[in-house]
Design a protein around this nucleic acid. Structure first.
Lengths: 195, 195
DNA sequence: GCAAAAGTAAACCGATCTGTCTACTCGCCC
DNA sequence: GGGCGAGTAGACAGATCGGTTTACTTTTGC
């Protein structure tokens, strides 16, 4: 990626996240990056493509941010809680307005939009991660436990983003910790087959 | 509200929710409602005001939809689970793209925007509801339990909206049920004071 | 040392954006 | 029956949208 493209993508990322995708025009991105529109279109081809690369790059950054947290943990339970720790630290600097994927999803209605699979892919990856980590704790309930952790985590990102109450991600971490403490011996067959 | 204003607000609600606020122009709203732009501006004054009334009316509809569910429940635990039941039924018809408040929040950056307090007000109301219902089960842990239920509920709306996995709201209901079953006798002092 | 790649500057395109305006019609109520 | 509120039809405004183009300059790799 050329220096101009780099600056453009960085500027677009900040603007898209802070103001929303539709609210940010390509002229603003170019001006903010100190780049001309020609450079933008030479490098990316379209605004749509900038959006796609914004989301993909942000996901990549998040995964790189998360990895050491999980790797540093020594227990299965610790690896799960490490995800919440990483989210809390990430949210402090990068994510004061909630999940960029969820926010982008609010603005993109067409499932054929190339950004769509980036969004759903990121969520699928997170669910797979929680499920895989849950497998080390409760192999037979891993799918269900993974989904529960996913719900707590997504809820925390929303609560933090909208500012429903303070320290939402810490609260979710506490809830996950309690779940892994109590849940590992209770309600072994609840719900999975119901409904 | 005049018939023209009614149709305009209905059309705007569908369009805003499905396509996003910034993606929908006033011309489209007018055309879809079978109304002229003059009527729009005579009745609402600005697009911003249409957005505010869209969110406020949707919140009002949701509260009216929810009330009978909660009132019909006979136990404290049942009243909490009734919220999830209502959300599941509501989501089936009205809310296939997640929470309109969260989605609107993604597009509105300025906290001074008049829609902002509608959004945060709705979330504060839901948290207060969960907390009040939790008080009947565990008075001393009501604040914390209310927040946990809020996280599960918000997470379920996101999971349902983005389509992370099927029956997300049912899963959240199951998790809430398990929490009310196990949690009522476990971990009485966990986390509340911890950072 | 030279050619290709990457960039600037700025005009330009048609479409769409929010918002305003004039001119006219219809129904209702006192 | 006269006035008023609510509406249609549609032109108009200035700004901004995503995107293209021309002409020229800088950087960089072989």
């Amino acid at each position: 990626m050329t220096p101009g493209a780099r600056r453009a993508l960085d500027a677009a990322s900040t603007l898209f996240y802070d103001r929303g995708i539709h609210a940010v025009g390509v002229d603003l991105i170019a001006a903010e990056a100190g780049v001309t529109k020609k450079t933008l279109y030479d490098r990316f081809g379209s605004k749509e493509q900038i959006v796609v690369e914004y989301l993909a790059a942000r996901d990549e950054r998040w995964q790189a941010f998360l990895a050491p947290y999980v790797e540093a943990a020594t227990t299965a339970r610790g690896r799960i809680l490490a995800v919440f720790d990483a989210s809390r630290d990430w949210a402090g600097e990068n994510s004061t307005k909630g999940c960029s994927m969820v926010n982008a999803h609010a603005e993109i209605s067409d499932p054929a939009h190339p950004a769509y699979q980036v969004i759903t892919g990121q969520k699928a990856w997170m669910l797979a991660l929680f499920t895989a980590l849950a497998r080390d704790i409760a192999p037979r309930r891993a799918a269900k436990l993974g989904r529960t952790l996913m719900l707590l985590h997504e809820g925390a990102l929303v609560a933090h983003g909208v500012g429903i109450f303070p320290d939402a991600i810490d609260q979710a971490r506490d809830d996950a910790a309690a779940l892994l403490r109590d849940g590992s011996r209770a309600a072994p067959t609840a719900g999975e087959k119901r409904r």
